[in-house]
Design a protein around this nucleic acid. Structure first.
Lengths: 330, 330
DNA sequence: TTGTATGCGTTATCAT
DNA sequence: ATGATAACGCATACAA
């Protein structure tokens, strides 16, 4: 078969153009010692032909591809968007490419993507996933975010317990007497669930009364409205502090509180979790427990790419901070 | 050299395990006709060894890799995040993988990523870029978003002109008498610049008075504050309508207006551009001209993957819509 | 120091 | 229908 005239040039083409052997070109490309006159000729040929190494062929040979897959539910929830951004940046710094896989919380898709990634012989996978039965090939290093997936798979997460505790303490410090904890989302056991325990702990240690409303899978958001309405007396909420499990929820609750004519933060203070800043802004969307996203990103990549596989810790919790965002008293 | 015992299994391993020839395994994997007993044995071996095809080797052979690179400034600006999400979904539907490249508006990085992508022999690149001098190998199909990059490169964008016009008309319809257009961002000539012309056109056709404030590269946001302050009389803004070039800007302007004690939308109505919804919410962050992101995503992928390369249009403008988001009168 | 030859995992072309 | 073999582009051990 004839070689297609206008397909991308290969090392062979460069070698012919420069009048040297294949191996010489390879050496120049990889920065190995080569006689100066040869080197110059090869470099000229490369420029002339606009040659680029084919990293698929490289990967086939080296069985390392400098590619990492990231599994994440989506990119439009700000916390996820921020993770994607920072992981991408960290990978770039190390000259790694990133395969993005939006899973939409779909367990089937998660598995499908993992297989896709493995076929692509990625060097590793970072995943924020929800499928409790994911099958992961043992040849592919995996780092989990926010979910412990067994002894062989390191999990990176925020210090969710401390965050919950911090929220409770902050509400107490800001003068709250009766607080509520609101939670929605997957009933799957994962690290963020510890926010609840931390909150309870904080309330107890500060003598802050509290109540919880936890929605199970499938229960609609309206349940929260009912809950809040059922805790009103004379048009006033009996809570003066609310800790929401995420900023997303805090955002929705904020809207509901407005509809119920409750003033935030005058009558009721709200704290969320994540540290969402909408337009890459400096201002937070709500008062919140901030997750250290850049550090989470760095840690995931570090763990994934470090080769002494034995020393990998099973669970890494990174410290959170409180930030004012308008929904608490300053 | 000894084959490493615990490296991933290959077709050869499967063939040995099943006691058949290599070619037979390949056929089974690719769904080509194979005698039933063979097929069963091969499938068993595949399951047993947990075999996965190596798509790098496939790519090397086929010189098509089912991978597309997406260049985008970042993933935390909601409009970009939404693009990333939808393009990812569309690609997935077609069994394509996506290499994500956050460029941070850095021209050097943009070029670097393009080279990285080409080395990876991606089947194509979709790029929302700012470098006016990008060098793109002619062997790699490229689709530009929001920027015309020459006759050989199709550009997909919203109908920015119509959007600007729509904003003006909407403000007029909602009773505005004196409007302002605010723009910030790259001075680079790109499609979104047409929002200005469209707005002017709309104002003229409705007899709406208007003024513009366009910040050049490097001018800080504070210039807008100055501008607004210089248009106040007796503590009241002389504008009753503002069209911001993006929702991001509308968000910032909204804050400034609050600081200036202007009531939105009672005293001044604000319209942004993009259609930003923060938490994947149903509600818009502000009244806005909505870009059809899912359609943009679909169109980019369509154009990129259709093979009759000649018929590719040079500029595709997709229709925008107006949406209420609280910063205009209902 | 430079060139040659082999193999990476897969697919496709051939005989069988 | 099945099995052997060459080729894809690159890296490297080895021979020159």
């Amino acid at each position: 078969m004839m070689k297609k005239a206008n397909s991308a040039p290969t090392m062979k083409d460069v070698a012919r153009e420069a009048g040297v052997a294949l191996g010489t070109v390879s050496k120049v490309v990889n920065g190995l010692p080569v006689g100066d006159p040869y080197k110059v000729r090869v470099e000229e040929a490369i420029r002339k032909l606009n040659y680029q190494v084919n990293s698929y062929a490289q990967g086939l040979k080296a069985s390392t591809t400098h590619t990492v897959a990231l599994l994440i539910p989506n990119t439009y929830i700000p916390f996820y968007a921020s993770l994607v951004y920072h992981i991408n940046i960290v990978l770039l710094k190390r000259k790694y490419r990133m395969l993005l896989c939006s899973t939409d919380y779909d367990p089937g898709l998660e598995q499908e993507y993992i297989e896709m990634a493995q076929q692509n012989k990625v060097d590793g996978i970072i995943g924020l996933t929800y499928n409790p039965n994911l099958i992961i090939d043992e040849h592919t290093p995996f780092i989990a975010i926010d979910r412990s997936m067994g002894p062989k798979i390191p999990c990176v997460t925020s210090d969710n317990f401390a965050g919950g505790q911090m929220a409770a303490e902050k509400l107490a410090d800001l003068g709250c007497r009766r607080a509520a904890f609101l939670r929605i989302g997957s009933s799957l056991s994962n690290e963020p669930n510890k926010r609840k325990a931390g909150f309870e702990n904080g309330c107890l240690s500060r003598g802050l009364e509290y109540e919880m409303k936890i929605l199970n899978d499938g229960e609609p958001y309206e349940e929260f409205e009912k809950f809040l309405k059922s805790h009103m007396e004379n048009g006033k909420l009996t809570f003066d502090g609310i800790f929401c499990v995420t900023d997303t929820l805090a955002h929705l609750i904020g809207r509901t509180l407005r509809d119920l004519n409750q003033k935030v933060p005058e009558n009721v203070q709200v704290i969320g979790f994540d540290g969402t800043r909408c337009f890459g802004d400096l201002e937070y969307m709500c008062s919140t427990i901030v997750q250290p996203v850049p550090e989470i990103a760095e840690m995931c990549v570090d763990l994934l790419l470090q080769d002494n596989r034995l020393s990998k810790p099973q669970l890494v919790c990174l410290p959170v901070t409180y930030a004012y965002g308008g929904t608490t008293k300053a």
